[in-house]
């Protein structure tokens, strides 16, 4: 460095004054979208508690947390695919397919650990297949996973012959009913997954590369990041998490059913959008979608407790999502 350039540095005093410490805790402008979900959750809780004081009761909180576990796991997986600028429309069907594979293992008298492994492996394999087609086959995420949605739910029907497989097992029963305080094992599992996902996204090279690939595939490629591999990885991850969610689903229902589970797909995408993750890719948090999933569960639960017909609930979910998207856009 020369004296001249050093002189230049001195002349170019930084034009932003040091911000006071507390300001660091406020979201930087343009990041308010990431706060939509927690804010909305608090608002919902206040409204529902006012209308129904039992809403925040121990039993109801426990029920809500338990009901949110599967959605949290699916939303975390979805976050990674959306962060790359893609979308996994097959998450719910992959979960159904994995659940059916669980049932196949169980029906054949396999040990429960092997059944769980089979479910996760099925989700992983299906996700990897889609990721490979998207990354290396260069076909749009939307199309591949739309096809995947159809294929996975079809395969679930084929393999199960349309019949549910009852799963009665001590481990599965404890998984669905056991808890530490109000926090059930299933939620605990979901939260552990969420924390690990947060570490993966923000504290590993892989996570940075996911955000870079989503932010600008061209720029990522120019620095030598293999975007195809990133695509393969995020869809594999999403499929694997769907496989894990399948275990919770089987535990919760007590059976492996070839049901469509469409609501889970809609809610998983909705939770990600509510969580302030940019659909264009490049920006994501894990906490946002987790709050989004909690919000959607609280919404469904609150409406049910007020005696609103189940038929209205998808309408409410849809309205909230569009509202959230509208609010975050308006704030930009």
């Amino acid at each position: 460095m020369t004296a001249a350039t050093r002189q230049a540095t001195a002349n170019q005093a930084p034009d932003t004054p040091a911000s006071p410490g507390w300001k660091r805790f406020l979201p930087e402008s343009g990041r308010w979208a990431e706060w939509a979900a927690p804010t909305g959750l608090v608002a919902l809780v206040i409204v529902f508690t006012a209308l129904n004081p039992g809403f925040l009761g121990y039993g109801n909180v426990q029920a809500m947390l338990a009901a949110s576990a599967i959605l949290i796991i699916l939303s975390v997986g979805q976050t990674f695919t959306v962060a790359t600028g893609g979308i996994d429309l097959s998450v719910a069907s992959t979960m159904t397919f994995s659940a059916i594979m669980f049932g196949v293992g169980f029906g054949a008298g396999w040990h429960i650990a092997l059944c769980c492994l089979l479910a996760v492996a099925s989700g992983l394999a299906f996700g990897a297949l889609q990721g490979a087609i998207i990354g290396y086959g260069r076909i749009t995420d939307f199309i591949v996973t739309l096809g995947g949605l159809s294929m996975a739910s079809g395969l679930a029907l084929v393999v199960s012959d349309g019949q549910p497989q009852t799963v009665v097992d001590r481990f599965m029963l404890r998984l669905s009913t056991g808890s530490i305080g109000p926090v059930g094992y299933m939620v605990l599992a979901a939260l552990v997954i969420a924390v690990l996902a947060h570490v993966l996204l923000f504290h590993t090279r892989f996570g940075t590369h996911v955000l870079a690939a989503g932010g600008s595939a061209e720029a990522a490629t120019a620095t030598g990041i293999d975007v195809r591999r990133i695509k393969l990885a995020v869809y594999t991850l999403s499929g694997t998490l769907a496989g894990m969610a399948a275990i919770l689903l089987v535990a919760r229902i007590g059976a492996a059913e070839p049901a469509a589970n469409t609501q889970f797909l809609l809610n998983a995408v909705a939770a990600v959008v509510l969580g302030g993750v940019a659909l264009a890719g490049g920006r994501a948090t894990i906490a946002g979608p987790v709050f989004g999933a909690l919000l959607l569960t609280a919404l469904t639960n609150g409406l049910t407790s007020l005696g609103v017909s189940q038929y209205y609930q998808p309408v409410a979910v849809g309205a909230v999502v569009v509202l959230a998207a509208f609010v975050s856009r308006y704030q930009k």
């Binding site: 590993t204 090279r205 940075t208 590369h209 955000l211 870079a212 989503g214 932010g215 600008s216 061209e218 720029a219 990522a220 120019a222 620095t223 030598g224 990041i225 940019a278 490049g282 920006r283």
Partner: peptide, 24 residues
């Protein structure tokens, strides 16, 4: 330094400086 820059806008300056060269 490419004609079209090749920075990722949604990442920070330091993340861009270390893109695919991250310290671990």
């Amino acid at each position: 330094v490419h004609q079209n820059l090749a920075l990722v806008e949604d990442l920070t300056v330091w993340q861009n400086l270390f893109l695919n060269r991250e310290l671990t």
